[in-house]
Amino acid sequence: MVGDDPDAAAADDEGPDPHADQPVVTAGAPSVAAEVAVILVHGRGATADGVVNLAESFYRHGVAFFAPQASRSRWFPYDARGEVERNEPHLSSAVDAVERALAQAGATGIPAERTVLFGFSQGAAVVTELLRRRPRRLGGVVVLSGSFVGPEDREFPEAAGSLAGTPVFVASGDADEYVPVDRVGATADLFRALDGDVTERIYEGLEHGISEAEFDVIRGLLDELLEN
C-alpha cells in the first residue's frame, strides 16, 4: 500500500479524473435476486477481477459483487503516509469511482443499509477516505491491511454526517511490512469518531494479506444481513 509506484512519474498524464472511465466488474447474484451488495475495492497492483475471485471465499447466495477498477491498477501513485495533496487528483477520483459503484448497487434496488464496503490494502485506504468525507449508514465496512491516507499528524475536520452505528471491521497483521499497527489503531479510532460500531483486530504473525479468521468475520457479517 505504501511506497512510490514505478509509474508515478507518469501520473500527471492521466488527467483530472484518472479513474473516470474505468469499468465496474459485477459478479455473484444477479440483480433481480440480490439481497445484499458488496463493493470490492482492490489493492495496488491488483484488479477488479482479482478481488472478485478473492471474494469467492465469502460468497453467499443472494450477494452481488461490484468491483471498480483502478487506472493502472493503483488508486493513487505515492506513499499513503505522505501528504494527501501529493496523491491528488487520484485519491479524489478513487473516492468518486467507489461512489459510482455504490450508486450502481443502489440502482439495482439494494439499499445502502444492505451494502457492505470492502477494501484491502490501498483499497482499504480509499474506503476509509470515502467514509471520512461522506459518512452514511451502511450494512457494513471491512478495512483490511490498510489505513487512512496522510501523515501521522493529519487533522480531520468534523464530518458532515455519521456512520450511525454501521458495523466496521478494521484488521491487519502485526507482521505487515506496509501498514504499521499504530496506523491501524488510528484508523479504527477515526471510524469510532464517525459513530461506527468498530471491531478492531491485530493478528499475530500475519503479513500483508488476509487470514481465514478475517474471512470468517466477513462471512458472519453477510450471514447476519441475509438473515434480517
Rank of each mutant, 00 (worst) to 15 (best):
V2C: 14
G3S: 07
A8V: 15
A8S: 10
A8T: 03
A9C: 06
A11W: 02
P16A: 15
P16D: 14
H19G: 01
A20D: 14
Q22Y: 12
P23E: 10
V24S: 08
T26F: 04
A33P: 01
E35S: 10
E35F: 06
V38I: 05
L40C: 07
H42Q: 05
R44P: 02
T47Y: 06
V52F: 00
L54M: 14
A55D: 08
E56I: 01
E56D: 13
F58S: 03
V63R: 11
F66S: 11
P68Y: 01
A70R: 00
A70H: 00
S73Q: 15
S73D: 15
S73P: 00
Y78S: 07
D79I: 05
D79Y: 06
G82N: 07
V84F: 10
V84H: 04
N87I: 06
H90G: 00
L91V: 15
S93F: 09
E99K: 04
E99D: 14
R100L: 02
L102G: 03
A103G: 05
A103H: 03
A105D: 08
A107C: 09
T108W: 08
G109T: 02
I110G: 12
I110F: 03
P111H: 05
A112R: 08
T115P: 06
V116R: 13
L117T: 07
F118G: 05
Q122A: 05
A124R: 08
A124E: 00
V126E: 04
V127C: 14
E129C: 11
E129Q: 13
L130S: 02
L130T: 04
L131E: 12
L131Q: 08
R134K: 15
R136S: 13
L138T: 09
V142F: 04
V143M: 01
L144E: 04
S147I: 02
S147N: 11
V149N: 09
V149P: 04
G150R: 11
P151F: 01
E152G: 01
E152T: 15
E158Q: 11
A160W: 00
G161L: 13
G161A: 11
S162G: 10
L163S: 07
G165Q: 09
T166A: 05
T166F: 11
P167E: 13
P167C: 01
V170K: 01
A171Y: 12
A175S: 10
Y178M: 15
R183Q: 05
G185C: 08
G185V: 07
A186K: 14
A186L: 10
T187G: 08
A188H: 10
A188E: 11
R192M: 09
A193W: 01
L194G: 06
L194I: 14
D197S: 14
V198C: 13
T199P: 01
T199N: 13
T199L: 14
R201M: 13
G205T: 02
G205R: 07
G205Q: 11
L206G: 04
E207A: 03
G209D: 01
S211N: 07
E212T: 06
E214H: 07
E214L: 09
I218V: 15
R219D: 15
D223F: 09
D223T: 10
L226Y: 01
L226C: 02
L226P: 07
L226D: 04
N228K: 08
